[in-house]
Design a protein around this nucleic acid. Structure first.
Lengths: 348, 348
DNA sequence: CTGTTAGCGCGTTCAG
DNA sequence: CTGAACGCGCTAACAG
């Protein structure tokens, strides 16, 4: 290991004192001619130290390249300034833009984010939660509202603010921010019925919330008089390729034309590409409704009619509510419904 | 704050003992009739404890909901099992897929990832590095090879493995894994020349490495006899909209047809969409070369000819080299060039 | 404004 | 196989 140029690699790190690392407040204090506590104070609240000693301390810090040990600080103060965040997937723009906004907001208040992917399904989420809690985060950001009983217990036991984002429920662990997924499906169905499409199909990715949106669409469509809905339900994540395959599958099921409700814009885009490849007119023969209003939805031709949800807003709202709790500003609302909006473009 | 139902919010956390939190190895030990060390041993190496006491300890843990305090553990052992990672943007699939692969690999070895976004440009990267180092990570994952002198010094002082990923250099801080960006531009230029396109244009996003690829393309194109290259250089991140605007810009500059080299597939896709919108034939009138081989590149019509780099492989390679160093397996290579490959499709 | 004294919860010796 | 003692680097009272 570079720079680990000791003879005995097994030797505890602490034995390598006096080198670049191992610079503590004690070291800095000695160099500045003050005690360790004074250094601590100078760092946490410079106004509690005289300008003269402050200067000496700062110089000593610069000379030694001292970097405070946040681990020790957290242990002593019971404040880690760490927020742990769990998302199904960081490569999915939907979640990454959510945590991005959340992180930026939290960083502004001095917090750092410990981020992990849970994959879909709460199996190993439990182990991840335990691993995260062992770092003693000051709060936790979770995606979705479905967590194992054991997970809930651990979270409650941790006695920290817990945000459940991207979905809402009446019984959050602590508080939740998001929107009603089923409602978006119903709204889309109503919109599509109004437009008078003869048939409807759904293409859905293999994620529980996506399914909930699709199911709601289909149920509502049929409830308000639509013909039975053709379905293509994938187990995999959404992708353009699945969108294309989705339309082909619908067609193979005897779907002859009408509206296709997709659980994401990515799938919708795939449907669009396949429709064009097959010479089908959009929205004349195939109309498409997506979900998410990702930036490409407005840019492709034809533009994708979709359900807009502001993921960045979710992240920000979660951060604000969390910060309020962290600052002990009482409990605040525990269900924050940010809603959604249907954006009409050319595809449906 | 939920569950923070003390009267005095100001009261130190430590004062709330005997509740759900504040369960320590001491607590567990008392319940199991053993000392704290024994609990520690039972957790770190069950074989060092008799089966009987092990069982009692496990029961006590289950009863109390004990979660080990990794902060204290790290402080005592100088091993945080934390890896810090810095990427320009987590919403960019290029980087997120890299860290995803990296994280999965590292998690397999028991490490967790502290992830932050640096944005582009090394200004605040420095502060972020300091913040991360204060958590005493066991190693660090950096994107790119351009870091301030101060940053380099801190990193060297930390005496931990440092991976610089996504680009290569002969003088890494510790080790780097990636490919030669300029080389991809040159290879693309050579490919395009061979295809006999009459003119060339570039559309580039505002990121230093993207620029390096574009510049190399233009220089090589002109060096091997091509006509002067038209350029559309954006300051912003790549997007479909910028791709469309890029082609419009090129056209406005008098570019009448030929090959367009894009710094990413996203831009290339935008160029494709704009070409179609303007009734331009691809690749007859406008040929397009992208970069990245993102999954949609093969799925759109026409398929995008692009430069494939395996980001997941970068993440994995970085993790493997890092783990080797973490396990003290000597230094290993310090420059890991994973190369790239031109993927020919219909767009050029 | 500054120093002293105690822990924070856990690993790591060293004895039994 | 188990326990006592000590220290990791820092914050939190309490004195001066």
């Amino acid at each position: 290991m570079r720079a680990m140029n000791d003879d005995q690699a097994k030797k505890p790190r602490a034995a390598r004192k006096g080198q670049g690392r191992g610079v503590t407040m004690e070291t800095v204090g000695r160099l500045a001619g003050v005690s360790q506590v004074t250094v601590s104070r100078a760092l946490s609240d410079p106004s509690k130290v005289s300008p003269a000693t402050l200067a000496k301390i700062q110089e000593a810090i610069a000379q030694t390249g001292f970097v405070p040990n946040a681990l020790a600080g957290a242990l002593a103060s019971s404040k880690s300034m760490l927020i742990s965040a769990l998302v199904p997937s960081i490569t999915n723009i939907v979640y990454s833009s959510m945590v991005k906004a959340f992180s930026e907001e939290m960083r502004g208040a001095g917090y750092q984010i410990l981020l992990s992917e849970t994959g879909f399904g709460p199996e190993d989420e439990e182990k991840l939660i335990a691993a995260h809690l062992s770092r003693r985060p000051d709060a936790m950001f979770l995606t979705g509202i479905h967590h194992s009983a054991q997970a809930r217990r651990m979270l409650l036991g941790a006695e920290i603010p817990v945000a459940e984002v991207w979905d809402i429920t009446d019984s959050p662990i602590d508080f939740c921010v998001g929107f009603n997924h089923a409602e978006t499906g119903r709204a889309a169905a109503e919109y599509a019925r109004r437009k008078g499409y003869p048939q409807a199909g759904v293409v859905s990715a293999g994620d529980e919330r996506a399914r909930r949106r699709s199911e709601a669409f289909a149920r509502e469509w049929e409830r308000i008089g639509g013909a039975p809905v053709a379905k293509m339900l994938f187990d995999a994540q959404a992708s353009l390729a699945n969108g294309r395959a989705g339309l082909r599958g619908l067609l193979a099921q005897g779907f002859t034309g009408g509206v296709v409700h997709c659980s994401s814009d990515l799938l919708a885009h795939g449907v669009l590409i396949e429709a064009r490849a097959q010479g089908l007119d959009v929205p004349g023969q195939i109309a498409v409704i997506g979900f998410g209003d990702q930036d490409f939805a407005a840019t492709v031709e034809p533009g994708i009619t979709t359900v807009r949800v502001d993921m960045a807003a979710f992240g920000r709202a979660a951060a604000q509510a969390m910060l309020a709790r962290l600052q002990g500003a009482g409990d605040g609302p525990s269900v924050i419904d940010l809603g959604f909006e249907i954006v009409e473009r050319q595809s449906a």
